[in-house]
């Protein structure tokens, strides 16, 4: 049953991805991106990664859709299409895709208990986490305590993104018409 759900979700994911590439109406593309994120969140849920699914649904399907719509309001709604055949990008994409597929061949099977990720620090966290932090959700104790530096780095990235947007787009009152003409 679980396999069936995953297969259905993954094929929807592939269909959505192909539709995103084929469509030229950017409004529809943004909506499909939201659907893509929602499907990804559902797959994460099937894989029992509720925290990741939660983030994907909130950020991918929610906030990014709104931000991309806000960007569309500033730019054009239709994609500029060129009919010229471009061999080099196609070559790069094909080689990269082939390399990625080749890389997955070395990956351990899903749920394999002997996989490297389950042998290193994960059992240690699972044993020590509830005792040392007193927090039932291991994801929270790992993210906030054992991997506190990483989370600090993530928050700094978000902070930098906010500051960057403010500096690039926030000063619309300064240098008005001349710069806008250049855009």
């Amino acid at each position: 049953m679980e396999h069936l759900i995953v297969i259905v979700l993954l094929s929807f994911l592939a269909i959505t991805a192909v539709a995103v590439v084929m469509l030229h109406d950017l409004f529809a593309v943004v909506m499909l991106f939201g659907i893509y994120s929602l499907l990804t969140a559902a797959i994460f849920l099937v894989l029992d990664a509720v925290d990741v699914a939660f983030t994907e649904a909130a950020v991918g399907a929610g906030i990014s859709t709104v931000l991309m719509l806000a960007t569309l309001a500033l730019t054009a709604r239709k994609e500029k299409t060129s009919l010229r055949f471009a061999p080099i990008p196609l070559l790069v994409v094909t080689i990269t895709g082939a390399a990625l597929v080749y890389g997955t061949l070395d990956m351990p099977r899903y749920g394999d208990p002997t996989a490297a990720i389950h042998q290193h620090v994960a059992p240690d966290y699972l044993q020590r986490g509830p005792r040392e932090t007193g927090i039932p959700n291991v994801v929270t104790s790992v993210l906030a305590s054992y991997r506190g530096y990483d989370t600090l780095g993530e928050v700094t990235v978000i902070f930098t993104a906010g500051v960057g947007v403010m500096m690039l787009l926030g000063s619309s009152r300064r240098g008005t018409k001349r710069t806008r003409g250049k855009r």
């Binding site: 906030i63 709104v66 931000l67 806000a70 960007t71 309001a73 500033l74 989370t151 928050v155 978000i158 902070f159 993104a161 906010g162 947007v165 403010m166 787009l169 926030g170 619309s172």
Partner: peptide, 21 residues
């Protein structure tokens, strides 16, 4: 702290985009 920064950044980014339009 994470919650405050993330919420504020999301609001700021949206407001900046929207008020530019």
């Amino acid at each position: 702290g994470v919650g405050i920064t993330v919420a504020a950044v999301m609001i700021t980014i949206f407001f900046t985009f929207a008020s530019r339009g």
